[in-house]
Simulated assay, not measured.
Amino acid sequence: MSVTYEIKVRWGDTDAAGIVFYPNFFKWMDEATHEFMLHLGKKSSEWITQDNIIIPLLQTTCEFKTPLYFEDEVIVTSDVVNVGNKVFTLEHLFTRNGELIATGKETRAWTSFGEKLKATPLPEHLKEIMYAL
Rank of each mutant, 00 (worst) to 15 (best):
I55R: 03
D51Q: 14
N97P: 06
V80I: 11
E71V: 07
W11C: 14
S45K: 12
A32E: 10
I55A: 04
G114R: 15
F21Q: 00
D15V: 12
E63V: 09
A119W: 04
F26I: 10
R10E: 08
A102F: 00
T61E: 00
A132H: 14
T107M: 04
S45Q: 10
F21K: 04
K43S: 15
L58K: 11
R96E: 07
L100T: 13
M130T: 13
E71N: 12
T89E: 11
L57P: 01
K127W: 00
E35N: 08
D72Q: 05
T14G: 15
S78H: 04
T120V: 06
F88H: 06
I19Y: 10
G104Y: 13
D72S: 05
K27W: 08
G104V: 08
E124T: 04
L122Q: 00
G104S: 00
Q59K: 14
A132M: 03
F70A: 02
E128T: 15
T111A: 06
G18P: 07
V76I: 14
I101S: 01
K43M: 12
L57T: 08
V87F: 08
P67I: 08
N97M: 03
K127S: 06
G18Y: 00
G12M: 00
E63M: 13
T33S: 00
C62A: 05
A119M: 10
V87G: 09
C62P: 07
D13V: 01
P56Y: 11
G114Q: 11
A17V: 15
E124G: 02
L126Y: 10
T66Y: 11
K86A: 13
Q50G: 13
Y22C: 08
S44E: 12
P23Y: 03
E63Y: 12
D72I: 07
T111I: 01
L40R: 15
L68R: 10
L126F: 00
D72H: 10
T77R: 12
R10Q: 04
I101W: 03
V9K: 07
T49P: 06
V20T: 02
I129Q: 14
A32I: 07
T103G: 07
R108E: 09
N97L: 14
E73P: 08
R96K: 01
I54A: 13
G114F: 14
V20I: 01
